[in-house]
Amino acid sequence: MTTSTTNATDGLRTRRVPTERLTVQLTEIRDEGEPVVFLHGNVSTAAFWHSALPLLPDRYRPIAPDLRGFGGTDPLPIDATRGLRDHADDLAALLAALGIDRAHLVGWSMGGGVAMRYLCDHPATVRSLTLVNPVSPYGFGGTHGVDGTLNSPDGAGSGGGTASPEFVARLAEGDRGEDSPFSPRAVLANHYLKPPRRPEREDAYVESMLTTRTGDDHYPGDSVPSPVWPGVAPGTRGILNCLSPLHSRLDELHLVRPKPPVLWIRGEDDTIVSDTSMFDLAHLGAIGALPGWDGTPAQPMVAQTRHVLNRYAAEGGTVREVAVPGAGHAVHLERPEEFGAALLEVLSA
């Protein structure tokens, strides 16, 4: 059974769609047009796309699902040993339930990784791929070099044990305040966007973040001790482990056939997905924010993405990189006009 609600202010409607894998909550505007699927990032929901969906003209059908473990989608456990395939398979099941054979994909942060994983697994079904401040194709944390070489064979420095315990606790408690730099609202204000900019729908975004399921099966996931710095390695369950380079790599992206056009748009002042990420333990160690740093290099996240997309282009793909000055991690919220113009260009390519 499908139930739906409509927001009369912006024309958005939300409904839950049963699929062969799980029931997915999605937000949409219309039932016709070329499908454009918007995939949100970690610790967020489709709400972070609500201002972007109306940017598309009537020839397109924008769809923004909540990924498993977030928002109104069924909170099934995440098998991190499959990398991002739980999410990519969920997307395939949703598109099948909606009767969609081909779609444009737009992925932000972790959603960019899901979109890349889906493209590798289902290349003929993707019309175009837009990556918005995407997670590195080599996962988050625990690697060095543009080819994503593991810092340690056990993936140390990535996975569920790298999350801030205070941030996890405040998520679980439903903290809506800003009395700590680890509160969801403070993380939104200081890292999702570039300060001092604050989003118009800040309360709605905080509520979205607070839907994140916490624990070993979700955020941040489980972890195991490591004999090397920083002393923690990824486990096999949960969201940060499915983003670990131990489980999630996209070395084959340049081999897909056919190759849809790719847009890579990013804020130049992103502090989350960055070559000097404030969420990468190796960078935090290098600047003295974590004790015992042994010289492990920070992950060059942007350089890794560029390396992979350059290989994609060298194999015959079309790639456009748009770097937006003065924007942070959520460039689609901070600079909607530039984001919308670049997106429409690749959709019509």
Results as ranks from 00 to 15, higher is better:
A46Y: 02
A47R: 09
H87I: 08
L12G: 11
L55W: 08
V135T: 14
Y138C: 08
A93R: 03
A96Q: 13
D79N: 14
A80M: 01
E20F: 09
T27Q: 14
R21Y: 04
P123D: 08
R61Q: 10
P75I: 05
V126L: 08
R13V: 13
L22Y: 06
F38W: 04
T5S: 15
L129N: 00
G99T: 05
T143E: 11
V132H: 06
A8T: 12
V24Y: 01
P77F: 02
L22D: 01
P57N: 13
I29W: 14
T27K: 10
L26F: 12
V17D: 08
M116H: 05
R30M: 08
L105H: 01
G99R: 00
S136N: 11
D74H: 01
F48Y: 15
T19W: 07
E34G: 13
V135Y: 02
G142F: 08
D58E: 14
R61N: 09
I100C: 12
G99S: 05
P134F: 03
N133K: 05
D58F: 12
L129D: 00
V114H: 02
N42H: 02
E20C: 08
L67C: 04
D58W: 06
L105P: 00
R59W: 10
G145M: 02
T14S: 14
R61H: 10
P35M: 14
G107Q: 02
G142P: 03
F140K: 09
P123W: 00
S4A: 15
R59M: 11
T5W: 09
S51H: 15
T81L: 13
E32S: 13
L26D: 03
R13I: 08
D58A: 14
R21K: 11
L119D: 07
G145S: 02
D79M: 10
D86H: 03
T9G: 12
